[in-house]
Write a protein that binds this DNA or RNA. Structure first.
Lengths: 342, 342
DNA sequence: CTGAAAGCGCTTACAG
DNA sequence: CTGAAAGCGCTTACAG
């Protein structure tokens, strides 16, 4: 480390509304009104206040404001890992959308086990206006603790029967059926499935719908291998699947990261051609899926639609807490690229 | 949307310390002490308070606590885009590290122009204990506004002479020299460079050091093409570079995403072999660089070391605001993989 | 439109 | 160890 100086700076307090009031020659209430939208204040009073505020570098203390009871403009965002492409992409867009409606994301990480209760409570301690959960499920008890405080709770990627939360979730079954139908209409005959994390809500829906549709279509899935939504898991599954004697000629994966792993296993480890020897299909359509290196055929999980829905749900519930609770399913589409001849 | 119910829940207030005190039959001060580490309280008083607190589901209101003046445990994190692999990876690890020292990240996005002043002020409105800037540079005025409030400011990826901030930054020049030296010792003769975003601090250092070292080594860089740290920018640069008559046989890129783009251009668009026809080298060593699909030789920008340093700097400055300001350079290493025969 | 006053839920000296 | 009281910086009725 290199020391580049040590001049101490006086720790100066922020200016307060009382100080601004004194300088402007008005009451403290008047200062407050100047910074409250819709409050009635005379033009020249406002002028005096604003001049004084500028001179002192005054900005209202949001904590004090929040304490009085109105809004904090804080929104808790509960997330698990962010180093996975889809989650990072979703989080990026979500924070943008929240900023657009004047909300600041307070990030609380769910622990590895996916427990959402503790981070949720942590967010509530900060009097957040609402909470968006991007990771994992919630229990009834967790939901209740939030609802009892009147804090809107919005879940992504998880649908619960507890009618006290709003949910946004991809129609996973529809997405899986799109893939099944494309495969059934193709030259591929032996399809396999690589799962996501088995505890994930989406996984159950995707798997069940895919297996069911393939069976009904007369080409039941020949093998199901465990994945974990990671590239490494996809590699392992791909190696197991494609080095077997009777290998599948098509692999549908629980998400894109898994599909990238399967492609790498096929091409780089086993010398197979994609899509000639084996088709690989993912789920999510992360930006990387469009890169020529993978050129992945995949189900688009529409992030922009998801984020817009979350934002609107939050805004609506902030405006009227009494609206009926809603489950919104976003509609997936199949994006055909080079990794599967479908 | 499907309506799944509409039973309204009473918006019940959180329990306050006064209510807990009443139930426990003690003073409100006693309740407060039970939730203040190191405060003196009799064991059986604590017992009574805790029982009452549990019964009422009491948790201290952090906003009120923050208002009184101690800590909020909020740390502002200023970030630009998070949908790029390195930033997402860094952000993921940083939020983990902050959580480990009991801090909650308040995320404020810098605007596209990279302006850090506005988001910084927004964070300060919440009385954050400190601010970590992951994106872009800061001006002297911005630094001052934070310092005058006594709020520690830690910059990643940017080194300033303003001696009022702590900086953590990869030794970009050293990293670029590692690449140059590896190329000078190799069979590659015609090296090119694809830049990052020209406004970025890191870009200037990487470029200058690479060009200088190659020139001194007797194999001056044959061409410099503009990139923007994105995969798409890398593709464009790669196409321009590698479809030219006298193409380079080695390409060093401003970051990994750019390198992935160059590799995709070479292999998928131009049918060139990497590393036989052209070597491609990146900077950062994002997790994806190790995937067999790219198997990228790159300079490791040590995220864990960066994050640990940021965390320690913050903790130290929170403990003693008077410490000398510091610029910490993390040491990069060259990770040799399959994309370059060096 | 404006100001005096109460109050949000805590922490922190200050006596005891 | 404990309680009464002041005060953090605001917003919001309430009079005027």
């Amino acid at each position: 480390m290199t020391d580049i100086g040590s001049d101490r700076v006086e720790r100066r307090r922020r200016a307060t509304s009382v100080e601004v009031a004194r300088l402007a020659g008005v009451s403290q209430s008047a200062v407050s009104r100047c910074f409250t939208v819709g409050a009635s204040i005379a033009p020249d009073t406002r002028e005096k206040v604003m001049t004084a505020a500028r001179a002192l570098g005054y900005r209202p203390n949001v904590l004090a404001r929040g304490l009085v009871g109105s809004r904090t403009d804080l929104v808790g965002v509960v997330v698990g890992n962010l180093d996975t492409p889809f989650e990072a992409f979703l989080f990026d867009r979500l924070t943008d959308a929240l900023a657009a409606i004047g909300k600041k994301p307070l990030v609380v990480r769910s622990d590895p086990a996916g427990d959402v209760a503790r981070p949720l409570l942590a967010a509530l301690d900060y009097q957040v206006d609402g909470v968006v959960v991007l990771a994992g499920g919630v229990t009834r008890a967790t939901v209740d603790s939030a609802k009892l405080l009147g804090v809107p709770l919005i879940l992504y990627g998880f649908v619960t029967t507890a009618d006290l939360v709003d949910c946004v979730c991809c129609d996973n079954a529809a997405g899986a059926r799109l893939v099944a139908d494309a495969l059934l209409a193709s030259r591929y005959r032996r399809a396999a499935y690589v799962t996501g994390r088995s505890s994930a809500f989406s996984e159950g829906e995707r798997r069940a719908a895919f297996l069911d549709r393939m069976a009904r279509g007369g080409r039941p899935v020949v093998r199901v291998v465990e994945g974990d939504y990671s590239h490494a898991g996809g590699m392992r599954a791909g190696l197991a699947l494609l080095s077997a004697a009777a290998r599948p000629d098509a692999v549908f994966c629980g998400n894109d990261a898994t599909a990238f792993g399967v492609i790498d296993a096929a091409r780089r480890r086993l010398g197979l051609r994609v899509p000639e020897d084996v088709a690989v299909i993912g789920f999510d359509d992360v930006p990387m899926a469009a890169w020529p290196g993978y050129d992945l055929t995949t189900v688009r999980n529409p992030v922009d639609a998801i984020v817009a829905t979350v934002r609107d749900m939050l805004a609506r519930r902030l405006a009227d807490a009494g609206e009926p609770y809603v489950v919104h399913r976003t509609t997936p589409t199949l994006v055909r690229r080079g990794s599967a001849a479908v």
